[in-house]
Amino acid sequence: MKSVVLIKRVPDTASVFTINDAQSGVDTSRLKFVMSPYDEHAVQEAVNLKATAGGEVVVVTLGPPEDKEKLLTALAMGADRAVLITGDGIDSLGHRGIAEALAAVVREEAPEVVFAGKQAVDDDGSQIPERVAELLGWSHASVVTRFSLEGTTATVDREIEGGLLTLEVPLPAVFSTEKGINKPDYPKLPNIMKAKKKPLEEKSFADLGLTAADLAAKVTVTQMSLPRQERLNKLLEGDSATQVAALVQVLKEDEKVL
């Protein structure tokens, strides 16, 4: 059972952001980067699948050379090989182009299963796994909290608002992972050392038969800003009973929400 895992390197979720002077993006110079948390679940699920079904785990990302560092993390978690799509024009892609480049690698690798986090916690695009599946003509299921495999059919649970769907999905297929599907095992030192000896291949758009111009984003950022919302910051006074009475009063009379 061969699987491919799609990951992304993103700013740590504890990051505090500042906007650049041109108001066109965030200042990333002082941020700490991690593997997107949902992608950790994707890597772990592929490693778990290999433990029971055998095969190979190939981890893939697209981005600048710095992204190798997170591929190494995935290799230390148990992936066997890594592919980095990088080179000129890498920054100019939108979700459409990123999905096309990733799908090209998946097509070459021809796995039975693809795992990817349900969304990357930087741009919160929430569309790459579905796009890759559709580009390949494969089945897919999103926001998976349970994955099991019998033969060439996966049974998965998928959360929706106020409910849970259980789906049977024939392979090959793409699954996007949600927290709760597993507990990622963070790599131990010996595995981190071993990861450095595992194969890590770089590919350019040309290697994949693509051009940056064809993949370029057709959504442009016109402005980025920090959300500003005026808050009342009103601390209620008095003893507990008085504070509670005052709160119920404002919620009912002023805010009209009770």
Partner: peptide, 14 residues
């Protein structure tokens, strides 16, 4: 974006 820590205005040219 960034779970709402930053707000992005975008133009869709597609």
């Amino acid at each position: 974006v960034y779970a709402g820590k930053v707000v992005s205005e975008v133009a869709v040219n597609d």
